[in-house]
Amino acid sequence: MALLEVQGVSKAFGGLIALDDCSLSVEEGEVAGLIGPNGSGKTTLFNVITGYVRPDRGSVRLRGADITGASPARVFGLGLGRTFQQARIFDRLSVLENMLVATQRQEGWLRSVVKGQSSPKERARAGELLQFVGLERLARLPAGNLSFGQRKLLELAYVLVADPQIILLDEPAGGVNPTLINLIAARIRTLNDAGAGKTFLVVEHNMEFVMGLCDTVTVMHQGAAIVSGSPDMVREDPRVLDAYLGGSDDELFEPEPEPEGGAETRLGAVDGRSRT
């Protein structure tokens, strides 16, 4: 049984079909990549999985349990963490306080009112994770002072506070400088290793990052997952090139001329809308 299973999910925003019968499964312990052109529905799929958007049709299962339409908090509580494309952290709280917000999720009302902000144990745990992402020296700074890449690292760190089994990362490398990209990739690998054994689903446009990091890659196009397989397999799949470069049966857009000749020759032979 797959750890995370998305089955036949559709979602339309007015006339815009963001997800169209999209299916996807992520096995435990893998780093799965999710790629696709802009507007292919990757972020909407994330929103559906994490409970921010309710799908029109279809189901999402985590370890076999149906979590379709559950609230974001419940999904997070069930062990499914998520970071955003534009890292969403609490700007006016300190870096450490950001970590503590995520710590206190299952608590009675009275306890939360009476107890102090954090226990030494929670601070120690927060400190460990900050050290893990290399932000421990900035713990007392307002999070709003962090750079773009540091914000992503902080978001990753506070998602880890809840010790999720699977983490969805939305463009962890987007707009981040190369040094930090390497750090982020290294941290994902560490978390994925046998010890921690965390599962990842990563949306990313940086192909080098995706191909280097992911065990499997799924390609989305026009709201559906069209190809899924190992990075090498996906790289060679004609449908992927078609999705990225514009298909022959795509009436709205002319296929863009591709400077590398190889791609163009493949384009002609493709039936663009076939799905897996």
Partner: peptide, 21 residues
């Protein structure tokens, strides 16, 4: 208090805070 910290988190990004439980 803890709930005060959560209140400040709501001030910064309510939906994200809700997403964190």
């Amino acid at each position: 208090s803890r709930f005060g910290l959560q209140l400040l988190a709501i001030r910064d990004d309510e939906d994200r805070a809700a997403g964190l439980g």
